[in-house]
Simulated assay, not measured.
Amino acid sequence: MSEASTPAAHPANRRGTARTRLLAAAAKRFYADGVSATGIDAITAEAGVAKMSLYNNFASKADLVMAYLDARHEEWLDLYRRRLAAVSDARSGVLAVFDAYADHADLAYEHGFRGCGLLNAAAELPAGHEGREVVRRHKEDVESLLAGHLGALLPDRPEEVRTVAEHLAFLLEGAMARAGLEGGGTRLRHARTLAAGLLDRL
């Protein structure tokens, strides 16, 4: 096989590699420094690519921000799926959502844990920005996951399922906010304990 035909040398693969590096760099810089404070030069320097590579992969910084938000959502879903793979009942499924949030807090961050990257980004975006809709859908998805597990736990109590799912979502988001301020996952683990106690009383 010639060098030109190897996967590493194929133009599409080079673009894919650059895109992956740019998304990783954006994730690191946006989370550490904020979306507004992070310029294109900082991202390309972090990624180790030329500025033209960014515009070959993303139409603009705004396009990169949207890709970052989508990637954060998928990153959390991956943490959740890993936790869910190890559980065998609906109660544990609810707690897997809390565990995934704690896993998120335990990841290595340049300046430490600063809370939910999606909410941090949304706070910088103006009202009506499509990125805020991405974040809103993510939070709705998390609540829906909780409701799905609760529905299996309380199959004959649909009204209570909706109420408890919202209650747990509020508990989770409040714990995430406090954990972000405190720089660690302790509040999230406390929230999990509170959630477990609530489930035991249902």
Rank of each mutant, 00 (worst) to 15 (best):
P155D: 05
L146N: 01
L153I: 14
E159L: 13
L145Y: 13
L154Y: 14
Y109A: 07
L125G: 00
F113M: 04
H129E: 07
P158N: 06
R132W: 04
L154M: 15
G117F: 04
E143L: 03
D141V: 06
A147Y: 05
L153N: 11
L146C: 05
S144W: 06
L150K: 02
P155S: 09
R162E: 06
R162G: 03
E143G: 02
G115Q: 05
G117D: 05
G151K: 09
E110F: 05
A121D: 00
C116D: 07
E166Q: 13
V161M: 04
E159N: 13
D156M: 14
G151L: 10
R157M: 12
C116Y: 02
R136M: 08
L125Y: 00
P155V: 10
V142Y: 08
R114M: 09
A169V: 03
P126N: 04
E110V: 09
A147Q: 07
R132P: 01
F113G: 07
R114P: 03
A121R: 00
A147K: 10
E166N: 03
V161T: 08
E110Q: 14
Y109M: 05
G148E: 10
H149G: 03
D141C: 01
V164Y: 05
H167A: 05
G117M: 01
R162K: 11
L154A: 10
L145I: 15
E140D: 08
E133V: 13
L146I: 12
E130F: 04
G151H: 14
V134N: 03
L150C: 14
V134F: 05
V161C: 09
V161E: 11
R157A: 15
A122M: 04
T163A: 10
A165S: 05
Y109K: 06
L145N: 14
G151W: 06
V135Y: 02
A165W: 05
V164Q: 06
V161D: 15
G117E: 15
L146G: 03
E124Y: 03
V135K: 01
R114W: 09
P155K: 07
L125Q: 00
A122K: 01
G112L: 09
C116G: 15
K139C: 11
T163Q: 09
H129P: 06
G115E: 15
E166R: 09
A123R: 13
L168S: 13
H111C: 09
F113I: 15
L118T: 11
L150P: 08
H167C: 11
S144T: 11
L119K: 11
G115N: 10
L107H: 13
L150S: 06
E130M: 09
H149Q: 12
L146P: 04
S144G: 07
G117S: 12
E166C: 04
R157Q: 14
